[in-house]
Design a protein around this nucleic acid. Structure first.
Lengths: 300, 300
DNA sequence: ACCTGAACACCGTTCAAGT
DNA sequence: ACCTGAACACCGTTCAAGT
């Protein structure tokens, strides 16, 4: 008679050995396992502990459990791919996209390239340099076609392009500077398109700069929450809506203490479905309000 | 990762703690530091400021800086202040305000309280718990008076209150969650005031929630840049405008390559004074546009 | 009951030594 | 020329041992 945790461990072991879960992939979180297999959290923890013991998976302190790198870690040998700055930067982006900026360590990048940490420093000045170059590459990847567009249409288009970039790289909005623009070609590209839309509006230059910066900051400011969503999801294995469902009780506990009567009322009115927390819709809603408020239309 | 001034401060700290520099000894002068470490004077000044803050050194008006007498680090003894959760959290806030969230380490908090790092864990679950409690305290410190205000006036008032909080604690906007609101009383306080302003507008509940979240996100999104400004300033010892002055050449180098002709034109039009990068004005400008765009006035 | 010292498993970064 | 191993000075966190 096999215990539940052994059954679960066996199932995950099979998926790893079949390549269904590749090295570096996240295993299901303990919460996901508990839900899917219909067991207690403690049982899920136990199942993962077995695989850890076997060296098949590794705990990543604040981001769950990960399939261990192939026992013999990738070794570079004559004829292997050359270590270049670009390869390093792309590896950094891949890690950041998948697991967040916090896990982009020089050592992690090096390990995934089968190289010592020290070797990285031949191509990159340090972690800061690496991250800044990652940002330049990410911003610069999207190109604009040379089309004629109404003023407002163009502003919306640029804002949505930025939003798309942030969606793809949720770590990015945490970096881009505002006060002291870094002269990164990848960043300036978007500013140019915003100024193109504002050109001919007969704005004084300071106002043009202000609107330029404001739209940039709006997209970036909202996008900061994309990462939070992703992080929270990977940490708890729950989506925003699921979280609200399960945590509603806790929120209500505070609310019920009479500290937040209006929030309590609103939650009541929202009913059983709750609030569909949709960042994309929120972005679009705020963008329209902002452009309306700035009085910018398509006509000259 | 570590700013130069922190590296220098750490080096001096080590020498003091090792007894290499005894109480009453002169520390190297700012000029000597600047020369020996190959950094700007401003950086040397900052490094010494850190040590002054820690009470390790004292400024002697016209004769430089001197290692403080209280060499034995603050020891707790019977009758000393009790180690409490609140004291720990307040120390964390003090560090974050002065030097950024990145320098809020469990070990740093412990050292400044004259206690071992392990002792902290008796009052706080870990670094995450510490930081979250710091946020709750910071958000909750501002209270609202029970006044009657027009709808729009109240929304502006709440937004400006949030802005003031972020100004005081530039690390704060990097934390507050949006997708999954933490049931922190300090955070809910502000949401209540926003809902109070929206109440009676006959909005469907989802729209009310959206506007609530949007205003919150707008203030927070722009405030993210406050920290960047502060960090950059403390790292380089230059203000935004000074930075633009010195780095203008670099920006222009990219701009002059013809990659950003409109930015080039705008910079030209701005003239010698350049762009006065004023976050407060930017915040106010965007806030008005947003509320205009939402069609919210003071009348019912 | 409260705190510490030591340990563990991590970081970024440097540098002499190897190939 | 390129890369590594080892080291240094840091992290967060745990835990047996001390007072």
């Amino acid at each position: 008679m096999e215990a539940p945790y052994q059954r679960i461990a066996a199932d995950l072991r099979r998926r790893i050995q079949a390549g269904e879960l590749a090295p570096g992939d996240k295993t299901p979180s303990t919460r996901a396992i508990a839900r899917d297999f219909g067991v207690a959290l403690a049982t899920a923890v136990r199942a993962l502990a077995v695989l850890k013991e076997e060296g098949l998976v590794e705990g990543r302190p604040r981001s769950g459990t990960v399939v261990a790198a192939t026992l013999s870690r990738p070794r570079r040998h004559p004829g292997a791919v050359e270590l270049t700055r670009e390869r390093i930067v792309r590896e950094g982006i891949a890690i950041a996209d998948a697991e967040g900026l916090g896990t982009v360590t020089v050592r992690a990048v090096a390990a995934r390239l089968g190289v010592s940490a020290a070797a990285i420093y031949r191509h990159v000045r340090g972690r800061d340099d690496l991250v800044r170059t990652m940002a330049d590459l990410a911003y610069g990847a999207e190109r604009y076609q040379d089309v004629t567009l109404g003023r407002r249409d163009r502003l919306e288009m640029v804002a949505r392009t930025l939003w798309r970039i942030y969606r793809r790289h949720p770590w990015l909005p945490h970096l881009a500077p505002l006060g002291r623009p870094l002269p990164l070609p990848g960043v300036l590209r978007h500013g140019e398109q915003l100024l193109l839309a504002l050109d001919g509006l007969d704005l004084d230059p300071a106002t043009a700069m202000t609107i330029d910066v404001l739209l940039y900051a709006y997209a970036q400011g909202l996008a900061v929450h994309v990462e939070r969503e992703a992080q929270a999801m990977s940490a708890t294995g729950l989506s925003s809506e699921q979280w609200l469902d399960t945590q509603g009780g806790t929120v209500n506990a505070v609310v019920a203490a009479g500290r937040a009567p209006l929030l309590a009322k609103l939650i009541g009115e929202l009913g059983a479905d709750g609030y569909d927390f949709d960042l994309d819709r929120l972005f679009e809603f705020g963008l329209q309000a902002l452009l309306d408020g700035l009085g910018i239309g398509n006509a000259d």
